[in-house]
Design a protein around this nucleic acid. Structure first.
Lengths: 245, 245
DNA sequence: TCAAAAGTGTTTTCGGTACACCCATGC
DNA sequence: GCATGGGTGTACCGAAAACACTTTTGA
């Protein structure tokens, strides 16, 4: 038995992934494609975030989790609700109107936006039924609705959040090198970091645990692998009230 | 001509104010009161946040601003949208149901919550038509709906935000003493701060400007007054990427 | 003259930053 | 043996933290 959709409330999901080899922070987008009834003309052909309307009997978090499960097959990913978007004109451009009419959505819908952090290698997009595809957050394709601004706001929130919480490890494989972490920070923040200082700082954290393993299959000196221990982090975590205005 | 309300989407406003003499951080609440039809029985008698349903033709920010204007007469206050609340059961306890039935609201409403920062002395509640009243955030009265958790989440967000942005001055009079600022930080964060260190730190900020004025009407040594210059702050502001995980 | 709060300095410690070369490995 | 990226140490500086007494004022 299907739950009833709330017609004017949706959840949209910004899924971030990190490509270790390209060193780019990416967003997972799905194709939005619509032809005219006679197939003579392409009416809509762009990308959007994955999103669902909220069901009458579920929480917003549940809608978001359901959307991600449906898109990627994964659950228990890092998830953050970061903002609601509800401008009256957020779905009013021409293509969006065509799309909405076709899908039977309400044209005054507010959406509660979440972002997710995902280990890119955990999913396989080869036969994804939504034609999901990764795009660098700095080189987004044409996007429907107000999804470009949703992505940019998610990105801003992520930049701030990754400075104060160890969420960055959600984007890396379980085993990573120090330089992987540095590259990821550099990609997200768009800055350069001194390798010696960064390395010292990270190695000194007790929740960054050196493994008895090194990289394999690299054509150079293989690097030491580390893991992040959430357990240790949470045990050690102490709020500090540094007022830095 | 009245705009049409969206029946299942509202905005709730957590209004924070600071009482300089009591040194408490307060929240502005309005009375929710309902008698049985024959006036024989008090059905509902508690407090809630001020909130409105979103109109078809307005943005969420506009709804929030309208609500505050209506409640306090003030506009252009510091305002932050911090979270959407949409659990299916958030309005389902007995009193809430009575209230909702009486008001004709939809019992599955999601609300987008904002908080506002206000200089307490800027408003006069004496003949406020909503019977609005200040309550210490640490001693809240019985609250309707899920408003207690909305307030607590707003408070958490405020605690974090005030560490990294100079929003605290929104809660103080335009002219304040260094100790006022310290007291306010101590109230919000529930911590003690060393006066000498705090004073030195604050006075060294170029956007904290000493005035040619001292306190008047105090029965002790009158303290030096300062003001906060948003202009100077914004000119000096430089993002720093201190990774403190 | 007293009560009350304002205001003041120094030392230590810690973490951030700047900076350049050698090393281990696979090919 | 060489190209590639991995890995290392030191010195300086600034900010945070700890800590207790004197000063000014109004009443």
């Amino acid at each position: 038995m299907e739950s009833k959709k709330i017609k004017n409330i949706s959840v949209d999901c910004v899924v971030f992934g990190y490509n270790t080899t390209e060193k780019t922070l990416n967003v997972l987008l799905i194709k939005r494609y619509l032809e005219s009834p006679a197939h003579s003309e392409i009416l809509v052909n762009d990308y959007v975030l994955t999103g669902y309307h909220v069901n009458e009997d579920e929480t917003l978090d549940e809608t978001a989790t359901r959307a991600l499960k449906e898109l990627t097959g994964l659950s228990s990913l890092y998830k953050k609700q970061f903002k609601a978007f509800g401008d009256p004109d957020r779905l009013l451009n021409e293509k969006d109107q065509l799309w909405i009419k076709n899908e039977g959505f309400n044209s005054r819908t507010i959406t509660v936006a979440y972002y997710f952090l995902i280990k890119t290698e955990a999913i396989n997009l080869n036969q994804n039924k939504y034609h999901a595809k990764w795009f660098p957050v700095n080189a987004l394709p044409e996007l429907g609705f107000d999804h470009e601004s949703i992505i940019l706001e998610a990105y801003e929130d992520l930049k701030i959040k990754c400075l104060s919480e160890p969420i960055i490890f959600e984007l890396l494989p379980n085993k990573f090198t120090i330089n992987d972490v540095q590259d990821l920070y550099e990609s997200i923040l768009g800055i350069e970091i001194d390798n010696r200082n960064f390395r010292r700082k990270l190695i000194n954290k007790k929740y960054i645990i050196p493994l008895d393993e090194k990289q394999v299959g690299v054509s150079k000196k293989p690097a030491q692998l580390y893991m992040f221990s959430k357990d240790v982090y949470e045990k050690m975590f102490k709020k500090n009230y540094l007022i830095s205005i």
